[in-house]
Amino acid sequence: MIRVRFHGRGGQGMKTASRIVGTAALLDGFIAQDSPVYGAERRGAPMVASVRIAEAPIFERGVIPAPDLVVVADDTLLDDPAVQPLAGLPPTGGLLMATAHSEEEARRHTGHPGALVARDFLTLALEQVGSAAGVSAALASAACAMLGLSGPAVVAAIGTELEAIGLSPDSIRANLRLAESARAGIQRVELPVRSLAAPRAGSPVVDVAYAPPEVGTPSVTARPNTPLRRTGNWRVFRPVIDPAKCTQCWVCFVRCPEGAIELDAEENPHLDYEVCKGCLICVEECPTGAIAKVREMREWAPSEVTR
């Protein structure tokens, strides 16, 4: 069995990418299973999708703890402690990521010694289909190339899955061209095939004791209560306010669904990037066009390594 785990954000199309890989594997004669996990649906929130490909019935379910291939839709996920996209990836596994950094930088930053494909699939998608969502077909195609799934199966799978989510024939054709260039030059990676998941040491079964009601009832007294999930890392694009164009109309302040825009003593709006989820409603709503949409690019300090 080969296990592929996708990491992305709600809206980046990683569920669709996982389905393209699943369908392509089925068309190539394998048994496949694909499943996304995204909790309560939130655009921009980290999500995971799992694809299992086998020649015998699959006796596993849920998120893959130890993948053979990891696909990362967005390099800002790499250092998010709530995501840990590389968790469980063995050194012999494969890593495919969309990043504006070079492959050398990606290898140094991730410390992954095995097969690595790191390309700027987002720019490729923006150029070729005019939408960030194109990264879905691009990464799916590249993943299929690394897995050695056949070209015709990939083309048929992209057609099936993009039609299923309502894309027009023109848009599907553009995505197929994008998929072709996305997989150019990518070689099949020899991944070790494990029929049984490697038995993991795991954690022993313990007793659960009665807790006093202050502890043992599901209430929350702390605020804020999401220190483990800084929503500021949900953005693919960040809104940036140009004070010169701002007329202090406060429309952005009123419309921000997260309360991430605050007013200072002079009543100028400021963004709290720790909380802003990058929904870009403020960009849409600003009547003077004072808020720009800027692609998130995280600098990697030379000493900073994901693991």
Binding site: P204, V208, V220, T221, A222
Partner: peptide
């Protein structure tokens, strides 16, 4: 599991 119990303790602390 013990790991789940540890995770639970973390979440309880976060919840105040």
């Amino acid at each position: 599991t013990a790991a789940e119990a540890r995770q639970m303790q973390t979440l309880l602390s976060i919840a105040g």
